[in-house]
Design a protein around this nucleic acid. Structure first.
Lengths: 115, 115
DNA sequence: GTCAACGTACCGGCTATCGGTATATGCCGT
DNA sequence: ACGGCATATACCGATAGCCGGTACGTTGAC
């Protein structure tokens, strides 16, 4: 893995709670990011293929709803562990940068926060 | 900006505290990441050019040390603001994923902790 | 003379994402 | 019936960012 990009990170996050099908992942990512991130179909399915290839997600089951196929993906234990590792990396990096901004006196009080 | 990758994020972080020349950025990034990240020359200078183009860093000054040119780069106010925004994005994303892992009962105690 | 560290800079190739399109079904309004 | 939209999977060309190697030049160690 080593530093997945934001779209992939959100796909893993979406799948962390429960199995979802492709389109469901799209919607979940959009909600999770408060509308900031909108996955393209190409990005989503390519990523799911890659993640499946890497063993981070697996196809959980397939359902036919109104004649449309729904392929559900599930996060593997390995995938959950990787996501956790990503979370820690993100936090470490954020603290690092914040500390350095603070040293230089360039860290402004968070908007709305208690500086 | 919108989700810079890790190498670029570390370059900004390295420059947050004080102006550095290219090679100094390489070393700083290596130290900051505890040896995890080692910037390639191609990655570094291409990124510095891009960031300069985007107005996030500027050439601070140039020095000649032992006949070798040192070009110092400095983070602009805009660059510092962007880095701060990145920090907040990282923290938000990390919390999001952690919460979702927790809900699913997949969040394990930190490695080295009570397992 | 060779090797390593310093220091900037270019080049080819790879991967992930973007933006668009193809395909197919069901629902809604007209 | 027909068009338009949401659902749902899947491919394609283009782009951006990073990797790995290399080029070029100086200084110091062996």
């Amino acid at each position: 893995m080593a530093a997945v990009q934001e779209p992939t990170f959100f796909i893993l996050t979406a799948l962390a709670e429960e199995p979802l099908h492709g389109y469901g992942v799209m919607q979940s990512v959009s909600e999770l990011s408060a509308g900031r991130l909108k996955l393209r179909a190409g990005t989503l399915y390519a990523a799911l293929d890659r993640l499946t290839d890497d063993g981070l997600v697996v196809v959980d089951r397939e359902e036919a709803v109104d004649g449309r196929l729904r392929r559900y993906y599930r996060l593997t234990d390995d995938g959950a562990a990787q996501l956790q590792a990503e979370v820690e990396r993100l936090r470490t990096n954020a603290s690092l940068a914040a500390a350095r901004l603070r040293k230089a006196g360039r860290l402004r009080p968070a908007p709305g926060g208690a500086g």
